[in-house]
Amino acid sequence: MDLGISGRTALVLGAGGGLGRAIAKALAQEGARIALADIDETALAATATDLSALGAPHLARRWDISRLDEAAGHLAAIAEVLGPIDILVNNTGGPPPSLAAGVPSETWAAQFQTMVLSVIALTDKVLPGMRERGWGRIVTSTSSGVVAPIPNLAISNALRLSLVGWSKTLSREVAPLGITCNVILPGRIATDRIRFLDEQKANREGRPLAEIVAESTGSIPLSRYGTPEEYADAVAFLASARAAYITGSVIRVDGGYLQNI
């Protein structure tokens, strides 16, 4: 199936991570031009190397998205090399594990700046161009915790859920302009982040890591963790011309893990 995004320019946030790298590669394989953004310069370079191997036009930018005043400069550099943004993939790193109670307000504020305000502010900057061209795709990656809050991930549960409300509201505002906004949420996808969380749980509970992983996969109907590529394929479809009638939705890529409807 031709997804109809060849020649489109996509900006992928968190492009150095497992999910972000897979998303960038999936979009590149469909012929999109890829702008890569990540604060981790080493991880960013690794993703750029992968795209070079695919022969995909791309530009890597070391970018701390919490620094809102720097966004305009990054976007101008991307537009000069690759063209204006047609596809925005909002993919931010996860906050530290925490309980809901007792977290300093400074921590909440810092994570809100990085995980929520940066996403909203950046989207506002790319929307005018999408409006002018009458075409745009905004895909925001969150977490299964927005549907079923995950113990010891209170910051993630709360802040990512706010993006769901924002995306749904925005989707109705921009739908008449040919722009779609969707949220996609991963279940247990085999990334460094999931391994870290499994290790944290093993340490807290004094159990072997293998036992934690077996318990986790046992709760998934497909009996395994998903791959970053499987998640990226779903993102690529939502970012495509083929998904023109899907907006305001929350799409789960979780192997059937979430039990609620």
Rank of each mutant, 00 (worst) to 15 (best):
A32H: 05
V139H: 11
G73C: 00
S98Q: 00
V103W: 07
R67K: 15
G31P: 06
T227N: 06
P228A: 07
V183S: 03
Y245K: 07
D124G: 13
D69P: 07
R160M: 09
T140N: 14
V213Q: 09
A101L: 11
F237R: 00
T92Q: 15
A241C: 13
D64V: 09
N152V: 03
A28L: 06
G129M: 11
C181E: 07
L117C: 02
P186V: 10
I138L: 10
S144T: 12
T247D: 08
G83L: 13
D50S: 12
D50I: 03
S52D: 11
I120G: 13
L163I: 05
A244P: 04
I155P: 01
P186Y: 10
G18W: 12
V126L: 05
S162C: 11
W135N: 14
D254H: 05
D2A: 06
I155E: 02
S143P: 00
I220H: 00
W63N: 07
A26G: 00
A45H: 09
L222I: 15
Y231N: 07
T42I: 10
G248A: 05
V12R: 03
I246R: 02
S66R: 15
L99G: 12
A72F: 03
T217N: 09
A72M: 06
E211R: 12
R160F: 02
L153D: 11
G93Q: 09
N91T: 12
L197Q: 06
L82R: 08
S216W: 07
A32C: 09
R224N: 04
L54M: 00
T169Y: 11
P228K: 07
R131Y: 00
A24C: 06
P104A: 02
E106Y: 11
I261W: 12
P151E: 04
V235S: 05
S143K: 01
V146Y: 03
S6V: 04
G93S: 07
Q200G: 03
L27W: 08
M115N: 15
A43V: 04
A10M: 03
F112Q: 10
G73V: 00
Q200A: 14
M130R: 02
Y231Q: 07
L122C: 08
R21D: 02
S141M: 13
L75V: 05
V164S: 05
L54R: 01
R133G: 02
G255C: 08
S66K: 15
A241R: 13
E211F: 02
Y231H: 06
L222G: 06
E211V: 06
V147G: 01
L19R: 07
A77P: 10
K168C: 01
T191P: 08
I5A: 08
I87K: 03
G165N: 01
D50F: 03
S144M: 14
G73S: 00
